[in-house]
């Protein structure tokens, strides 16, 4: 695999991103290394090619935002909105993630080895997210579709106003949000969990140590008796 190295200390981010937006046929199969990210925002956003990008350090907001097809590995921690609105591909954060990790992501897999901050998987629209550590409060708020796997604990108001997303939690949940309830994990859900654990490097973790949460679907229609929950 051909490897290209960019140094963010020497080359402006705009030029690196523009290079990464180049013709997919010339980018496909390439491996790109970005050195000295030093927490810069918007690294490797809007990719749409089968490339592998390795960020050698910490990234700021929106790392790998709106990713399509690419594999982006951050060898450090990330700021808010990592892989926000990802459509496909794979984003792997080896450190911690700040708020709104994987917000509104439609597809692909986001793996965070450490903890994630507030509102992880907010308004999730179909992607898969695996967090090796714990997530902060209000995670999976209004999550519409997709799967969130949490190996650690979840903060307050998990899954508030959730639609059809599935939340698998191994540790403690401080509290559930409105309309989120524990579900029975059937064979179909268990299969999804096993698959996600193995694809995120947690194949040795016992799937039966997780609980499943999802929507009670009582807020799907406006009703006077639900007024207190709105």
């Amino acid at each position: 695999m051909e490897t290209l190295t960019f140094d963010l200390d020497k080359k402006p981010l705009r030029e690196i991103n523009q290079f990464l937006h180049g013709d997919a046929s010339t980018l496909n199969g390439k491996s790109i290394v970005i050195e000295n990210p030093n927490g810069a925002h918007n690294i490797a956003v809007g990719l749409k090619a089968d490339v592998e990008v390795t960020i050698k350090g910490h990234a700021g907001y929106y790392a790998a935002g709106m990713n399509q097809l690419a594999k982006v590995v951050v060898e450090g921690s990330v700021g808010s909105g990592v892989a926000e609105n990802m459509m496909s591909g794979h984003v792997h954060v080896k450190g911690f993630a700040s708020n709104a990790a994987g917000a509104t992501a439609n597809g692909g897999l986001l793996v965070i080895d450490g903890d994630a901050g507030l509102r992880c998987a907010i308004a999730l629209k179909g992607a898969d997210i695996v967090v090796g550590g714990s997530v902060g409060s209000f995670s999976a708020f209004m999550a519409q579709a997709g799967n969130l796997v949490i190996l650690g604990d979840a903060g307050e108001g998990l899954g508030d106003s959730i639609y059809e997303a599935r939340l698998f939690v191994r540790g403690k949940v401080k509290s559930l949000g409105a309309d989120c309830e524990e579900k029975v994990m059937g064979p179909e859900e268990r299969k999804i969990l096993v698959d996600l654990l193995s694809r995120s490097g947690h194949g040795d973790v016992d799937p039966d140590s997780f609980k499943l949460y999802g929507s009670a679907r009582t807020l799907y229609h406006f009703h006077v008796d639900n007024a207190g929950a709105y």
Binding site: H41, N42, V45, Y61, E84, A103, T104, I122
Partner: peptide, 19 residues
């Protein structure tokens, strides 16, 4: 979902421009 104040908005706009 992924930004809250005017300082965040600046980064969000930069993201849209980069993309």
């Amino acid at each position: 979902p992924d930004w809250t104040g005017p300082d965040d908005l600046e980064i969000k706009i930069a993201e849209l421009r980069e993309i």
